[in-house]
Simulated scan of single mutants.
Amino acid sequence: MTQERTGVATFKGNPITLIGPELKAGDKAPDFILNKDLLEETSLKDFAGKIKLISVVPSLDTRVCDAQTRRFNEEAAGLGDQVAVLTISVDLPFAQARWCGAAGIDRVITLSDYKYHSFGEAYGVFIKELHLDMRSIFVIDADDNLAYVEYLGEMADHPDYEKALEAVKKLI
């Protein structure tokens, strides 16, 4: 049975329901299946041995999501090759590619949760009412353990960029 979490998040002040568990630092990172494009899929094991900074956004075509993705793209340059910076949304892969091209995003790997909602449900960020993934941040160490988790209470708010980056730098 799928776990539903209510009373933990809002969208512009309106309550939303999150599907999946609430993960915590120290938990083993759940596996997922995401799309690189319409046919090619990827999973957690494809980033084995790397530190993963996962930035989850509802849709790249919104103001806060745009700013969040641009910020982590800028920061990625200073994190080194041992860190994979991923942005996950439910945008279709070709929309992600178009947006990245227009925005000059070249260091962040964009992945789509549109097909299975595998990431959203495994990480407890799939929004039942909107079929989007809730804004959140996950830092996963090279052994696939969660080192940092930030679930935002309001979808329109920015995450704590500094705390997320600090968590990554502690693992480098």
Rank of each mutant, 00 (worst) to 15 (best):
M1Y: 13
Q3S: 09
Q3D: 07
E4G: 11
G7N: 10
V8P: 08
T10I: 02
T10H: 12
T10P: 14
K12T: 14
N14E: 15
P15E: 11
I16T: 09
T17W: 11
T17R: 11
L18S: 04
L18I: 07
I19R: 11
P21S: 11
E22S: 13
E22T: 13
L23H: 07
G26W: 09
G26H: 09
D27S: 03
D27Y: 01
K28W: 02
A29Q: 02
D31R: 11
D31V: 09
F32I: 05
F32T: 06
I33M: 14
L34F: 07
L34V: 03
L34C: 04
D37S: 09
E40T: 15
E40R: 15
E41P: 10
S43Q: 14
L44H: 09
D46L: 05
K50I: 06
K50W: 03
I51G: 06
L53M: 05
S55H: 03
P58T: 12
L60V: 15
T62S: 15
V64T: 13
C65D: 11
D66P: 12
D66H: 15
Q68L: 13
Q68F: 13
R71F: 15
F72V: 07
E74F: 12
E75C: 01
A77L: 14
A77N: 12
G78D: 10
G78C: 04
G78S: 12
G78K: 10
L79Y: 05
L79N: 04
G80N: 09
A84I: 01
A84N: 07
V85S: 01
T87R: 08
D91V: 06
D91L: 04
P93M: 02
F94A: 11
F94Q: 12
Q96S: 08
Q96P: 06
A97T: 15
A97V: 13
R98P: 04
W99E: 05
C100D: 10
A102Q: 15
A103K: 14
G104E: 02
R107Q: 12
V108M: 05
T110I: 03
T110N: 11
L111S: 06
D113F: 06
D113I: 08
Y114N: 10
K115P: 09
Y116H: 15
S118K: 09
F119V: 07
G120S: 03
E121N: 14
A122I: 10
A122N: 14
Y123C: 03
G124L: 02
V125E: 01
I127C: 07
E129L: 04
L132P: 01
L132R: 07
D133Y: 07
D133H: 08
D133M: 06
M134D: 12
S136E: 01
I137T: 14
I137K: 09
I140D: 00
D141K: 02
D143H: 10
Y148C: 00
V149M: 00
V149R: 01
V149L: 00
E150A: 10
Y151L: 03
Y151R: 03
G153A: 13
G153F: 09
G153W: 08
A156K: 13
P159Q: 02
P159M: 00
Y161M: 01
A167F: 02
A167E: 02
V168Y: 00
V168C: 00
L171C: 00
L171T: 00
L171A: 00
